[in-house]
Amino acid sequence: MKPDLHPAYGPVVFRDKAAGAAFVSQSTLAGRPGLATIEWEDGRTLPVVDVDVSAASHPFWTGTARVLDSEGRVEKFRRRYAGR
């Protein structure tokens, strides 16, 4: 196997600023230079990646999703072209 072929894989903190939530996961982003770091709850200093949406802020997972179209597409099509 070739040495230094695969990127570094390690713990990274993913932070959702919209919801104020953060969680640790494994990622290849751990080896990326220039990432900001954060002191995690167990005393480790880990790289942090800010994300726009996570399960803590996504409308589907929080239960705040709205149904915009209550009528199905097939029914709309049939009603529109029923007279033809």
Rank of each mutant, 00 (worst) to 15 (best):
S54Y: 04
Q26P: 00
R73Q: 10
R80T: 11
G83A: 12
D69P: 00
K76H: 13
F14W: 02
L5D: 07
K2S: 14
E39Q: 15
A65D: 09
D42I: 08
V12Q: 01
G20S: 08
W61H: 14
D52M: 10
V12I: 06
P3H: 03
T64E: 13
A56D: 10
R15P: 04
V49A: 04
R73T: 10
K2P: 11
Q26F: 01
T45R: 15
A56S: 13
A55D: 07
Y9H: 08
G10D: 01
T45W: 09
A21F: 06
R84K: 15
G72S: 04
E75A: 13
A82Q: 00
P33N: 08
T45M: 12
H58L: 08
D50A: 06
D16L: 04
L68V: 03
R73F: 10
V12S: 05
V67N: 11
A22F: 08
Q26L: 11
V13Q: 02
T62I: 14
S25I: 05
A65K: 04
G34Q: 09
A8H: 03
Y81R: 06
W40A: 11
V12F: 07
L46V: 07
G31Y: 00
W61C: 00
F14N: 00
K17V: 07
A22M: 10
R15A: 13
E41Y: 12
G10I: 02
V13D: 01
D50V: 03
G31N: 10
R73S: 13
V12G: 00
E71R: 12
A21N: 07
T28H: 15
D69K: 05
S25D: 11
R80A: 11
R80V: 07
Y9I: 06
A36Q: 12
A30Q: 09
K17G: 05
G34E: 07
H58A: 08
